[in-house]
Amino acid sequence: MGNVSPTPRELLTESLIFWSIGIVLYIGRMISRIIATGSIKRLYFEDYVMTVTFLIYTSLLTLIQVSSHYATNLMDPADYNQVLGDPQQVHDRIIGSKIVIGLEQCMLFSTWGVKTCMLTLFWRLTKNLRLHLYVKIVAIYVAVGFVVIMVTYYAVYCRPFSQYWAMPVEDMQCATYQNYSITQAVFNISSDAAMLAVPIPLLIKAHMKKTKKVLLVCIMSLGVFTIVAAILNKVFNFASPLTTTYQIWYIREASTAIYVANLVCLWPLMRKIFGFVSTQPGSDPNRAQAGQPNKGVSRSAGTAGDSQSRSSTFLERDRLFRGFGERRTIERVNDSGGIEKVNGHHAVALELSKARANCDLEAGGSHNSQVL
């Protein structure tokens, strides 16, 4: 693109393509959440944040289209005499400069909205882990960055504020936004890099199929492109300060961030589409099928199937506890009435033994209550 601003058609084409993918992923996210929670009334806080963020993102793309039809006070000083001699050009450039203010705010809010959405998800996933402290630190850093950017934009870099749309502009910072761009880039890129470090230990320790783990790694790797887009956005902004090439990269950066935040929540919907959903949430479809009585089968056989399904459920819970049992303890009441802490594996074994006993008794069998 060089020193040539993108045409309105180029901006429109990119906006339509990226927004179309974004709306599909957003709708898929909401459907997936409803499947996972069982009701639209049980959506998580980050789902509402994403809804507001997507509306702001849509406004960003709309303002970019409107802005492409207007010039701004960003122009070569050699053209001042010609432009200032035409009142219509002056009027149009003032309107275009005001549109850019709204455009910049939409970009800032959509970018930080995605950060809020992801941090809320990480906050919940790491609540009982040591990694939670790191998430808290990143969240504070993101909040501080947002405040610093807003304060410097409105009260520091361009004074008085009306200089953002002044014709002619007295301070070129009010037209090029270079100091603002540096501040925004520092907090935006550094916070994105810090957030990318959160899911890495979670994926390493997670007990899941390799295919799902690889899929999640691929999704998270899109966050790297978000950082690259943010860097290229500023590179073009500094290399071609008198063009609007940065708007192309605004579209790409904001869109990729939206994609990542929505893709990480699509797993329940993907399981539903490809037939991997069982009759009970969180259970294996083979177990659900084994535990479901068929027509013509006696009631005792059905009860035995139910007990087998329940045993499988407790076996599954046992495997989940084994992943965290080394660092956690479980309290139980001992025979003397006091509270004692036992190793997570022993506690699970006790509960599993009791569960098997109940299942066998319900099936008409016998069980010797023996601690494993």
Results as ranks from 00 to 15, higher is better:
residue 251 I to R: 04
residue 300 S to N: 12
residue 252 R to F: 08
residue 295 K to L: 15
residue 301 A to F: 08
residue 301 A to V: 13
residue 253 E to V: 00
residue 293 P to G: 11
residue 258 I to A: 07
residue 300 S to I: 13
residue 256 T to R: 03
residue 251 I to A: 02
residue 263 L to P: 06
residue 280 Q to L: 07
residue 279 T to M: 11
residue 276 F to P: 02
residue 264 V to C: 04
residue 263 L to S: 05
residue 290 A to L: 10
residue 290 A to R: 13
residue 282 G to Y: 05
residue 293 P to S: 11
residue 298 S to L: 07
residue 291 G to R: 13
residue 301 A to G: 10
residue 297 V to E: 15
residue 303 T to Q: 14
residue 282 G to F: 07
residue 293 P to R: 15
residue 295 K to W: 06
residue 292 Q to C: 09
residue 279 T to Q: 06
residue 276 F to C: 04
residue 283 S to D: 09
residue 298 S to V: 03
residue 252 R to T: 01
residue 306 D to Y: 10
residue 305 G to I: 01
residue 279 T to C: 03
residue 271 R to D: 14
residue 261 A to F: 01
residue 289 Q to K: 15
residue 271 R to M: 05
residue 266 L to Y: 00
residue 268 P to K: 11
residue 264 V to R: 02
residue 267 W to K: 00
residue 262 N to D: 02
residue 287 R to N: 11
residue 268 P to E: 07
residue 263 L to D: 05
residue 270 M to Y: 07
residue 295 K to A: 11
residue 304 A to R: 14
residue 258 I to T: 03
residue 278 S to F: 04
residue 300 S to W: 14
residue 270 M to E: 09
residue 305 G to K: 02
residue 299 R to D: 13
residue 278 S to C: 11
residue 278 S to M: 06
residue 266 L to D: 02
residue 279 T to S: 09
residue 303 T to A: 04
residue 257 A to F: 01
residue 289 Q to C: 04
residue 287 R to C: 09
residue 294 N to K: 07
residue 256 T to L: 15
residue 279 T to E: 09
residue 252 R to V: 07
residue 289 Q to S: 13
residue 306 D to H: 09
residue 286 N to L: 14
residue 268 P to Q: 10
residue 259 Y to N: 01
residue 289 Q to H: 14
residue 279 T to W: 08
residue 303 T to C: 11
residue 261 A to T: 03
residue 252 R to H: 11
residue 280 Q to M: 06
residue 251 I to G: 01
residue 269 L to C: 00
residue 302 G to E: 14
residue 305 G to M: 10
residue 298 S to E: 05
residue 252 R to L: 15
residue 279 T to R: 14
residue 302 G to N: 12
residue 277 V to P: 02
residue 260 V to Q: 12
residue 284 D to Y: 13
residue 254 A to S: 15
residue 259 Y to H: 03
residue 304 A to L: 11
residue 296 G to S: 03
residue 305 G to S: 15
residue 273 I to H: 04
residue 299 R to H: 13
residue 286 N to R: 15
residue 254 A to M: 10
residue 279 T to Y: 04
residue 255 S to Y: 02
residue 260 V to P: 10
residue 286 N to G: 08
residue 289 Q to N: 14
residue 292 Q to H: 13
residue 268 P to N: 07
residue 249 W to L: 15
residue 290 A to T: 07
residue 263 L to N: 05
residue 290 A to K: 10
residue 293 P to I: 15
residue 286 N to S: 12
residue 271 R to Y: 05
residue 254 A to C: 13
residue 277 V to G: 00
residue 273 I to M: 03
residue 261 A to V: 05
residue 295 K to R: 14
residue 269 L to Q: 02
residue 293 P to E: 11
residue 298 S to R: 07
residue 289 Q to W: 13
residue 267 W to E: 03
residue 276 F to A: 07
residue 283 S to Y: 11
residue 263 L to F: 08
residue 272 K to T: 01
residue 261 A to M: 06
residue 286 N to W: 08
residue 251 I to S: 01
residue 274 F to D: 00
residue 277 V to H: 00
residue 275 G to F: 08
residue 255 S to N: 01
residue 258 I to E: 12
residue 286 N to H: 11
residue 283 S to C: 13
residue 283 S to F: 08
residue 264 V to S: 01
residue 249 W to Y: 15
residue 299 R to G: 04
residue 270 M to G: 09
residue 272 K to Q: 06
residue 271 R to S: 03
residue 282 G to V: 08
